[in-house]
Nucleic acid binder design. Structure first.
Lengths: 344, 344
DNA sequence: CTGAAAGCGCTTACAG
DNA sequence: CTGAAAGCGCTTACAG
């Protein structure tokens, strides 16, 4: 560590540390002479200021924390990307944590971010409540929830209203003749898991169908549970002719099993999923999805956070969702479907 | 910010700040009485130590930096995930930066990580050389390169040897009758872009083919360039019957255009790509890939970094790659292919 | 095992 | 416009 300090820099430039500090931070009260001398010294020493010391003294770190649920989920990878870019444009560096859909890791990262004095945190919260989240609010660290919320915790959020898209999807499937739709639910400990399931059951009712508990499988938003769901749902006495997955990763797991069973998607079985991942449109047949804008969600999350950091009390934003129909649910149900499935 | 400090904590526990600090850091020289008092006070105050102050004093932050090229690339998302998990197990928090395949952002993040006093950095370097990377080495900050390297910069690395896999792929395609293989290259400013292209041309030579410059398109590892590549490669006078993409994102872009042109993959045109992304096996037909283990790469990167942080001088590791044949390149070339392509 | 004291690298009123 | 001085919240020899 040959790290030069502000003192070294000031000595080389022939000014006091105070003046050097002012030049570095763009304080207006500096002479052209001082500015030039300090800037030359910065170049000569390859000086990089110690952000920790600066943060310790000034109580701002120009850093925000972002905690996502699962970085391997393309939805969160895209979200992380847009948030990080938006923050960078505003001069903030983003520290990204990955909870890996794990409550303990989630709490650990929250504490790590608190202890690093981030200026604000954007988090897709894990679980129902958490001591770590309470620490966040009790310290009045600017916080914004993204994608998910925790009921009863008063924090601005950007979420998606699943109602519209899911209702369109169910009506669409019913219109094709499906009256038994298997639903691969997310975990009920997560707000999006709960919301999407209740949107789904409401949509069934709106279409004159009743909820059959056999046709609901509770997954955990990760791929393996989507695979398990297909095995379970297709082995009930009167199996579904359509599947609806509450997120893209479970859809991937479901797809793998459906292929392995030799079922032809869009013909033997219809599939619709939540979240429009780029390559879903490249599958054969392409996947029908309930979609919402990741870019908007990321951008709005940063806007809300900046507002909170500036002392504002912004209102939460709820985006709408909509159905995009593609080949995986394009055809009316075929008579042979029921027989075919009987043989599995 | 109701943040309690170590002084508050010590006062509540009835000990000195020094003793409180020792208890928190697990120093052996503490009495059971002191430990209990401090631990009770920690709970009462919901105390989270200020990591910045600690790092400032002790010159270690228990934080490592990870800078990837593009977090939306599933390869890097997986890599980030394995590195972050491995680091967490060793007690390190990972700060993730995303260069977005952009040299300027790359340098900016390096400086941000330096200034936050990370204990070490794992980086997939951007470009040929960079002042930021020089700062890293001149400060002797423990650094490990992953996936990519910078020639002439003496830093331990984990990379993939593309030779074996690419040679297998070319032999495989030639065996199916392809003698005009279009290559979608990565940027030649990046080591993996260069290595894979030279492996490819060597493999052509080994199979008795010569390099036709018309059949090489230079992309940038992102999806849009894969799309552009297909347009360009299929419009040369004597177009290729097989395509080989140097990374998964360019393959995704290529796939989209191939579909749009109505070409049947595996029949009208063979496709092979670098990087085995989970869902490539779910496509219809599934994609043949040249693959290497992301998990191993991540794990080894962390091991190397820990070794460097402990003062070691570990040797670089180079993983081998291998071909996985799937439906996208399963069939021998058909006579009708040439005609079909003539009509596009 | 414990505490008083110095100091990590910065910033920021304060006085000039 | 500039500098001396205090202090942000910790850790760590040092002495006991």
């Amino acid at each position: 560590m040959n790290n030069a300090t502000l003192k070294d820099l000031a000595a080389l430039a022939g000014v006091s540390p105070a003046t050097a500090s002012r030049v570095l931070s763009g304080h207006p009260a500096t002479s052209a002479r001082a500015r030039q001398a300090v800037e030359a010294a910065v170049r000569e020493l390859d000086f990089v200021p110690n952000a920790q010391a600066r943060a310790l003294r000034s109580t701002r770190s120009d850093t925000i924390g972002l905690l996502v649920s699962d970085i391997r989920n393309p939805f969160f990878a895209d979200l992380a990307h847009t948030i990080e870019q938006a923050a960078l444009n505003l001069g903030y560096v983003t520290l990204l944590g990955n909870a890996n859909e794990n409550t303990q890791q989630h709490d650990r990262y929250i504490n790590a971010l608190i202890s690093r004095q981030v200026d604000g945190i954007i988090v897709a919260p894990q679980g129902d409540s958490s001591d770590a989240i309470k620490s966040l609010t009790s310290r009045s660290i600017p916080t914004v929830f993204v994608d998910r919320i925790i009921p009863g915790v008063d924090v601005p959020s950007v979420t998606t209203d699943s109602d519209a898209g899911i209702r369109q999807a169910v009506s669409h499937l019913v219109g094709l003749g499906h009256d038994r739709i298997g639903y691969i639910a997310g975990p009920q400990t997560v707000s999006t898991g709960r919301d999407r399931l209740s949107s789904f059951t409401a949509a069934l009712a709106a279409n004159g169908l009743t909820v059959d508990p056999d046709l609901i499988f509770y997954g955990n938003f990760q791929a393996a549970s989507g695979s398990a769901a297909v095995h379970a749902l297709l082995s009930v006495p009167h199996p579904p002719t359509a599947l609806f997955a509450a997120d893209s990763l479970m859809a991937v797991g479901a797809l793998a099993v459906v292929h392995r069973l030799g079922l032809q998607i869009g013909v033997d079985i219809a599939i619709v999923t939540f979240d429009d991942i780029e390559w879903f449109a490249l599958l054969d047949p392409p996947l029908s999805v309930v979609s919402h804008s990741v870019e908007d969600m990321g951008r709005i999350a940063v806007e809300l956070l900046v507002d909170v950091m500036n002392g504002g009390r912004p209102k939460s934003v709820c985006q709408t969702s909509e159905l995009i129909i593609r080949g995986s649910s394009a055809h009316a149900i075929l008579p042979r479907t029921a027989e075919l499935r009987g043989s599995n």
